[in-house]
Design a binder for these strands. Structure first.
Length: 697
DNA sequence: GTAGGGTTAG
């Protein structure tokens, strides 16, 4: 009966039964009883009960029974109490090879390689089990060559030895070697089983080698092993990982034994292939969901840029009373960062603190990034400095975020601080060069670029070049920028040329602008921004004929200018505005406010800069168009619907235009309100008539 | 009747 309880993982029940046995003095508790009970404690890591039993064993004088002693050593070992196990081992008058191996198990479990090696070398009688344990331990510690050496030196190898070395390869990323060893094993006439199957299938999945996976699948069907649930799951995962959704689906459909892992694998596999709707269907129809299911679906939405769905599903999850863990919150916070949902983000930050969740490196970095992307620099830095450990990406988030928010000096200071703790990587330099770009720090940028190559041996990638081209171009060094493009070892991408085109526009270089603009349009006829830039270059020079030509080109090729859209959150509700939009329910109040804004701005000397207006229309009409830009509508609404001292926070999908930038500066002065605009590239913090970007954007 | 191998899901 005791054994029955233990076999059904009911150690507590076995202990209860044992205690009632103790009360019935006529029942004989002997040296056969304790091993069963101690084993039960080992299986459930019930250290407390185990110690109690140890006491009884001593009282009854069974500590001379090698069988009982071995079970105690093993129990202490798997409960992680290696020193207790060792004391047992050292003090026991009776030991056999099982005692040595049980002790070795403790060292394997705690990853103590040196102690294990010592023990292994001192063993009076090693057997296959001892050597297999050592291979496993060495594999876990990444000491592949030692494991391999041990394996090769073994006189007698069994299925477990082969499996141990295969999984050692697999866990250390040596997938080819793992598969080769399976073939060896097969040729050596060693039978294979479902345990080794799982390991090699994982290797196939990591190699994206679906053909090898298929033949292993076939092999296991032939030997009749296909119906183990773990093997099913490993197969499903392998097919999904290799992108063979149909094969996975087929296995899933005929699967006689599916569990949560099968469902969760299917969901995440479909998401990895971008099949969101199918994944959602599986999620909605699965018999039960655990945290991993929610997490897979939520993070899937985030990774596929479906941020509103991320937030909606997170809301559903809370509605069902399920408590999120750190991993899920990372996805949700990242979605908040993308859509600029500051209120939601703050709520999660508070939730983390209230529930005592651990702000690990990833969570802290994501929070820092979220606050930065919502323009809340101080909150971001508070999270950053509050983190217990910071990784490269944490530093990168801080550097990038500060730069994006116009605090370039502080950003470069953090970079200096970072160098004392970790070695910067290529992303760090994208951030640092980006910081220089935001401030037009040409010399500094050149120096950092040099240092990156010479001091840190980082090969510049296309992003680094893009930053430099932009930096030089914006500073008016158009020739240098073009030369740099010509010197790039890789083919410049559209963004790089686009940066130079933007610079031509900014510095009114019509000749170069026309040359590059025409090239870009030819290269990417469907891209709206290049047409608009080139057209604006012509417009600013009064070349209306060319403007018209570009417009016709756009119409011919069905290029539609992406409409500017501004979003503002008021009392937890997001409001969106398009240019000239009259659909908002409070449009009358907004228009009155626009009038008021216009009057006050005129007094402060505001002159609409109409040179960027695409259309060839008269000045008055241009002014009206300008004053209906989406960001101005959003600001007007912000002035009505929100109150100081909270800043008016706006997110725009495109870059803010010259006129709106000038107007926003004056509005911040005229209405004494801080305005924070996040555009496509960076933040603008408007305060007392000036902007944090110092006119570089 | 005690000791050794695996993995798959975020």
């Amino acid at each position: 009966m005791l054994r029955a309880f233990v076999q059904r993982n009911q150690a507590q029940d076995s202990i209860l039964l044992y205690k009632s046995m103790l009360k019935k003095s006529f029942l004989c508790i002997d040296n056969y009883t304790y091993p069963i009970l101690i084993q039960g404690c080992a299986v459930e890591f019930a250290e407390f009960e185990g110690r109690e039993l140890h006491d009884h064993v001593v009282k009854m004088g069974y500590d001379f029974d090698v069988y009982v002693v071995n079970n105690l050593i093993y129990m202490y070992s798997v409960c992680g109490k290696v020193s207790d196990a060792r004391r047992m081992f050292d003090e026991s008058p009776v030991l056999d090879s099982v005692s040595w191996n049980s002790m070795l198990a403790g060292y394997v479990l705690t990853g103590s390689v040196e102690e294990a090696k010592l023990m292994y070398n001192q063993m009076p009688k090693k057997n296959v089990i001892s050597s297999n344990s050592m291979i496993v331990l060495l594999g876990k510690k990444g000491r592949v060559s030692e494991a391999c050496q041990l394996f090769n030196g073994m006189e007698e190898k069994d299925l477990v030895s082969w499996t141990a070395l295969i999984s050692c390869y697999e866990q250390n990323g040596m997938y080819e070697e793992a598969l080769d060893l399976l073939v060896d094993m097969y040729h050596n006439g060693v039978k294979v089983d479902e345990v080794v199957a799982v390991s090699v299938l994982s290797a196939c999945a990591n190699l994206l080698n679906v053909r090898m996976g298929e033949s292993i699948h076939g092999l296991f069907i032939r030997i009749g092993l296909e119906s183990y649930v773990n093997l099913q799951n490993a197969l499903i995962y392998m097919y999904l990982r290799c992108g063979d959704v149909l094969a996975a689906q087929k296995l899933f459909d005929i699967g006689f034994c599916l569990d949560l892992i099968s469902w969760n694998s299917m969901i995440s596999g479909h998401l990895k292939c971008g099949l969101v709707e199918k994944a959602r269907e599986l999620f909605d129809t699965m018999p039960e969901r655990d945290l991993v299911s929610w997490s897979a679906m939520i993070s899937g939405y985030t990774q596929l840029d479906r941020y509103p769905e991320t937030l909606a599903l997170f809301y559903d999850m809370q509605h069902e009373g399920i408590e999120p863990d750190e991993t899920i919150l990372v996805s949700v916070i990242s979605a908040c960062a993308h859509v600029g949902a500051l209120e939601q983000g703050k709520w999660i930050d508070a939730y983390i603190q209230k529930n005592g969740l651990k702000v690990n490196m990833i969570l802290g970095t994501t929070l820092t990034d979220m606050y930065m992307k919502c323009g809340c620099v101080e909150n971001a830095m508070q999270v950053f400095y509050g983190m217990e450990e910071r990784g490269i990406s944490s530093w990168n988030a801080a550097i990038l975020g500060l730069a994006m928010n116009g605090q370039v000096e502080r950003s470069l200071e953090i970079f200096e601080e970072m160098k004392k703790c970790v070695v910067p990587n290529e992303i760090t330099f994208v951030a640092v060069l980006g910081a220089c770009r935001h401030m037009g720090l040409v010399e500094e940028g050149r120096q950092y670029f040099d240092a990156m190559v010479k001091e840190y041996n980082i090969e510049p990638n296309i992003k680094h070049y893009g930053c430099m081209v932009d930096l030089l171009g914006r500073a008016g060094l158009l020739k240098d920028a073009e030369e740099l493009i010509d010197s790039m070892p890789m083919t410049p991408d559209v963004a790089t040329w686009g940066a130079l085109l933007g610079a031509c526009k900014k510095h009114g270089d019509k000749e170069m602008g026309e040359r590059i603009g025409r090239k870009l349009i030819e290269f990417q006829p469907e891209h709206d921004g290049f047409h608009v830039l080139l057209s604006n270059i012509y417009a600013s020079k009064g070349n209306w004929a060319n403007v018209l030509e570009i417009r016709e080109m756009m119409m011919r090729q069905d290029v539609v200018k992406i409409p500017g859209c501004s979003m503002i959150e008021a009392n937890g509700v997001a409001h969106e505005f398009l240019a000239g939009d009259r659909s908002h329910p409070r449009i009358n109040e907004i228009e009155d406010m626009l009038e008021d804004m216009f009057t006050r701005l005129k007094i402060l000397g505001y002159a609409p800069s109409t040179d960027e207006v695409l259309l060839d229309i008269d000045e008055e009409e241009k002014e009206t168009n300008l004053f209906r830009h989406s960001e101005k509508l959003a600001i007007a609404f912000g002035l009505i619907a929100t109150s100081p001292p909270a800043p008016i926070r706006i997110i725009k999908n495109l870059r803010i235009c010259n006129d709106c930038h000038a107007a926003a500066k004056l509005i911040s002065k005229a209405f004494d309100r801080e305005i924070v605009v996040r555009d496509r590239h960076r933040f603008h913090h408007f305060k007392h008539g000036s902007c944090s970007c110092m006119e570089y954007w």
